[in-house]
Amino acid sequence: MYESIITVTGLTVELGGNPVLTGTRLAVAAGEIVAVVGPNGSGKSTLLRCLAGLQPAGEGTIEVFGAAPSDEGPFWRRVALLADEPAWYPGLTAREHLELMSAVHTGPSRLTVEDALDVFDLRSRADAPPLNLSTGQRQRLALAATLLRPSDLLLLDEPERGLDAAFRERLAGLLDAYAAEGGTVVMATHDPLLAAHGRQVSPATGGVPA
């Protein structure tokens, strides 16, 4: 029995007088992986920001977990968003960022910090400040922090950014495992391999299958 996690109907968003989304609709069930695909400027990131409650809808309704998304603590305890690279806390190492993430969440973490360091290939750089990591390593650290914490919904904006081909494949497996545990994934991506792991939708065509 599928429960609807996200319901979007007739979503219209204008940015600077330029219509980015027009009449987009989307329904996502629990345990589903949805890949939002489309050319640059087709509104993928805007759709994700709307789902995260960071971009108000011009018209239409957005419901996440049966309510309008809000930029508040209780919402973020269920939803994990990874968009642009986060600003790392000054003076903390890569490992400490992961420890912080597992320390602030009361529920059991999905991964231990040690496992996360292994899975995301960061053990050798665990004591480095994130700014000293390469672009791809920083993206892996951000993904590790996102996937380590407990959550019911993952919103990922181009998670493949900076990752090598081998790790992209591993990421696809990690997202499959997340969905198999009952989690829901909505990601904007340009990577055909990642997109193939989910139901593909395009905001440009109003949210119908791409």
């Binding site: 995260a52 603590g73 973020w76 305890r77 994990a80 642009d84 986060p86 602030v104 922090a145 914490r149």
Partner: peptide
């Protein structure tokens, strides 16, 4: 971004 990931109000 990190504050949202931590989910602390």
């Amino acid at each position: 971004s990190l504050a949202r990931l931590t989910g602390v109000g």
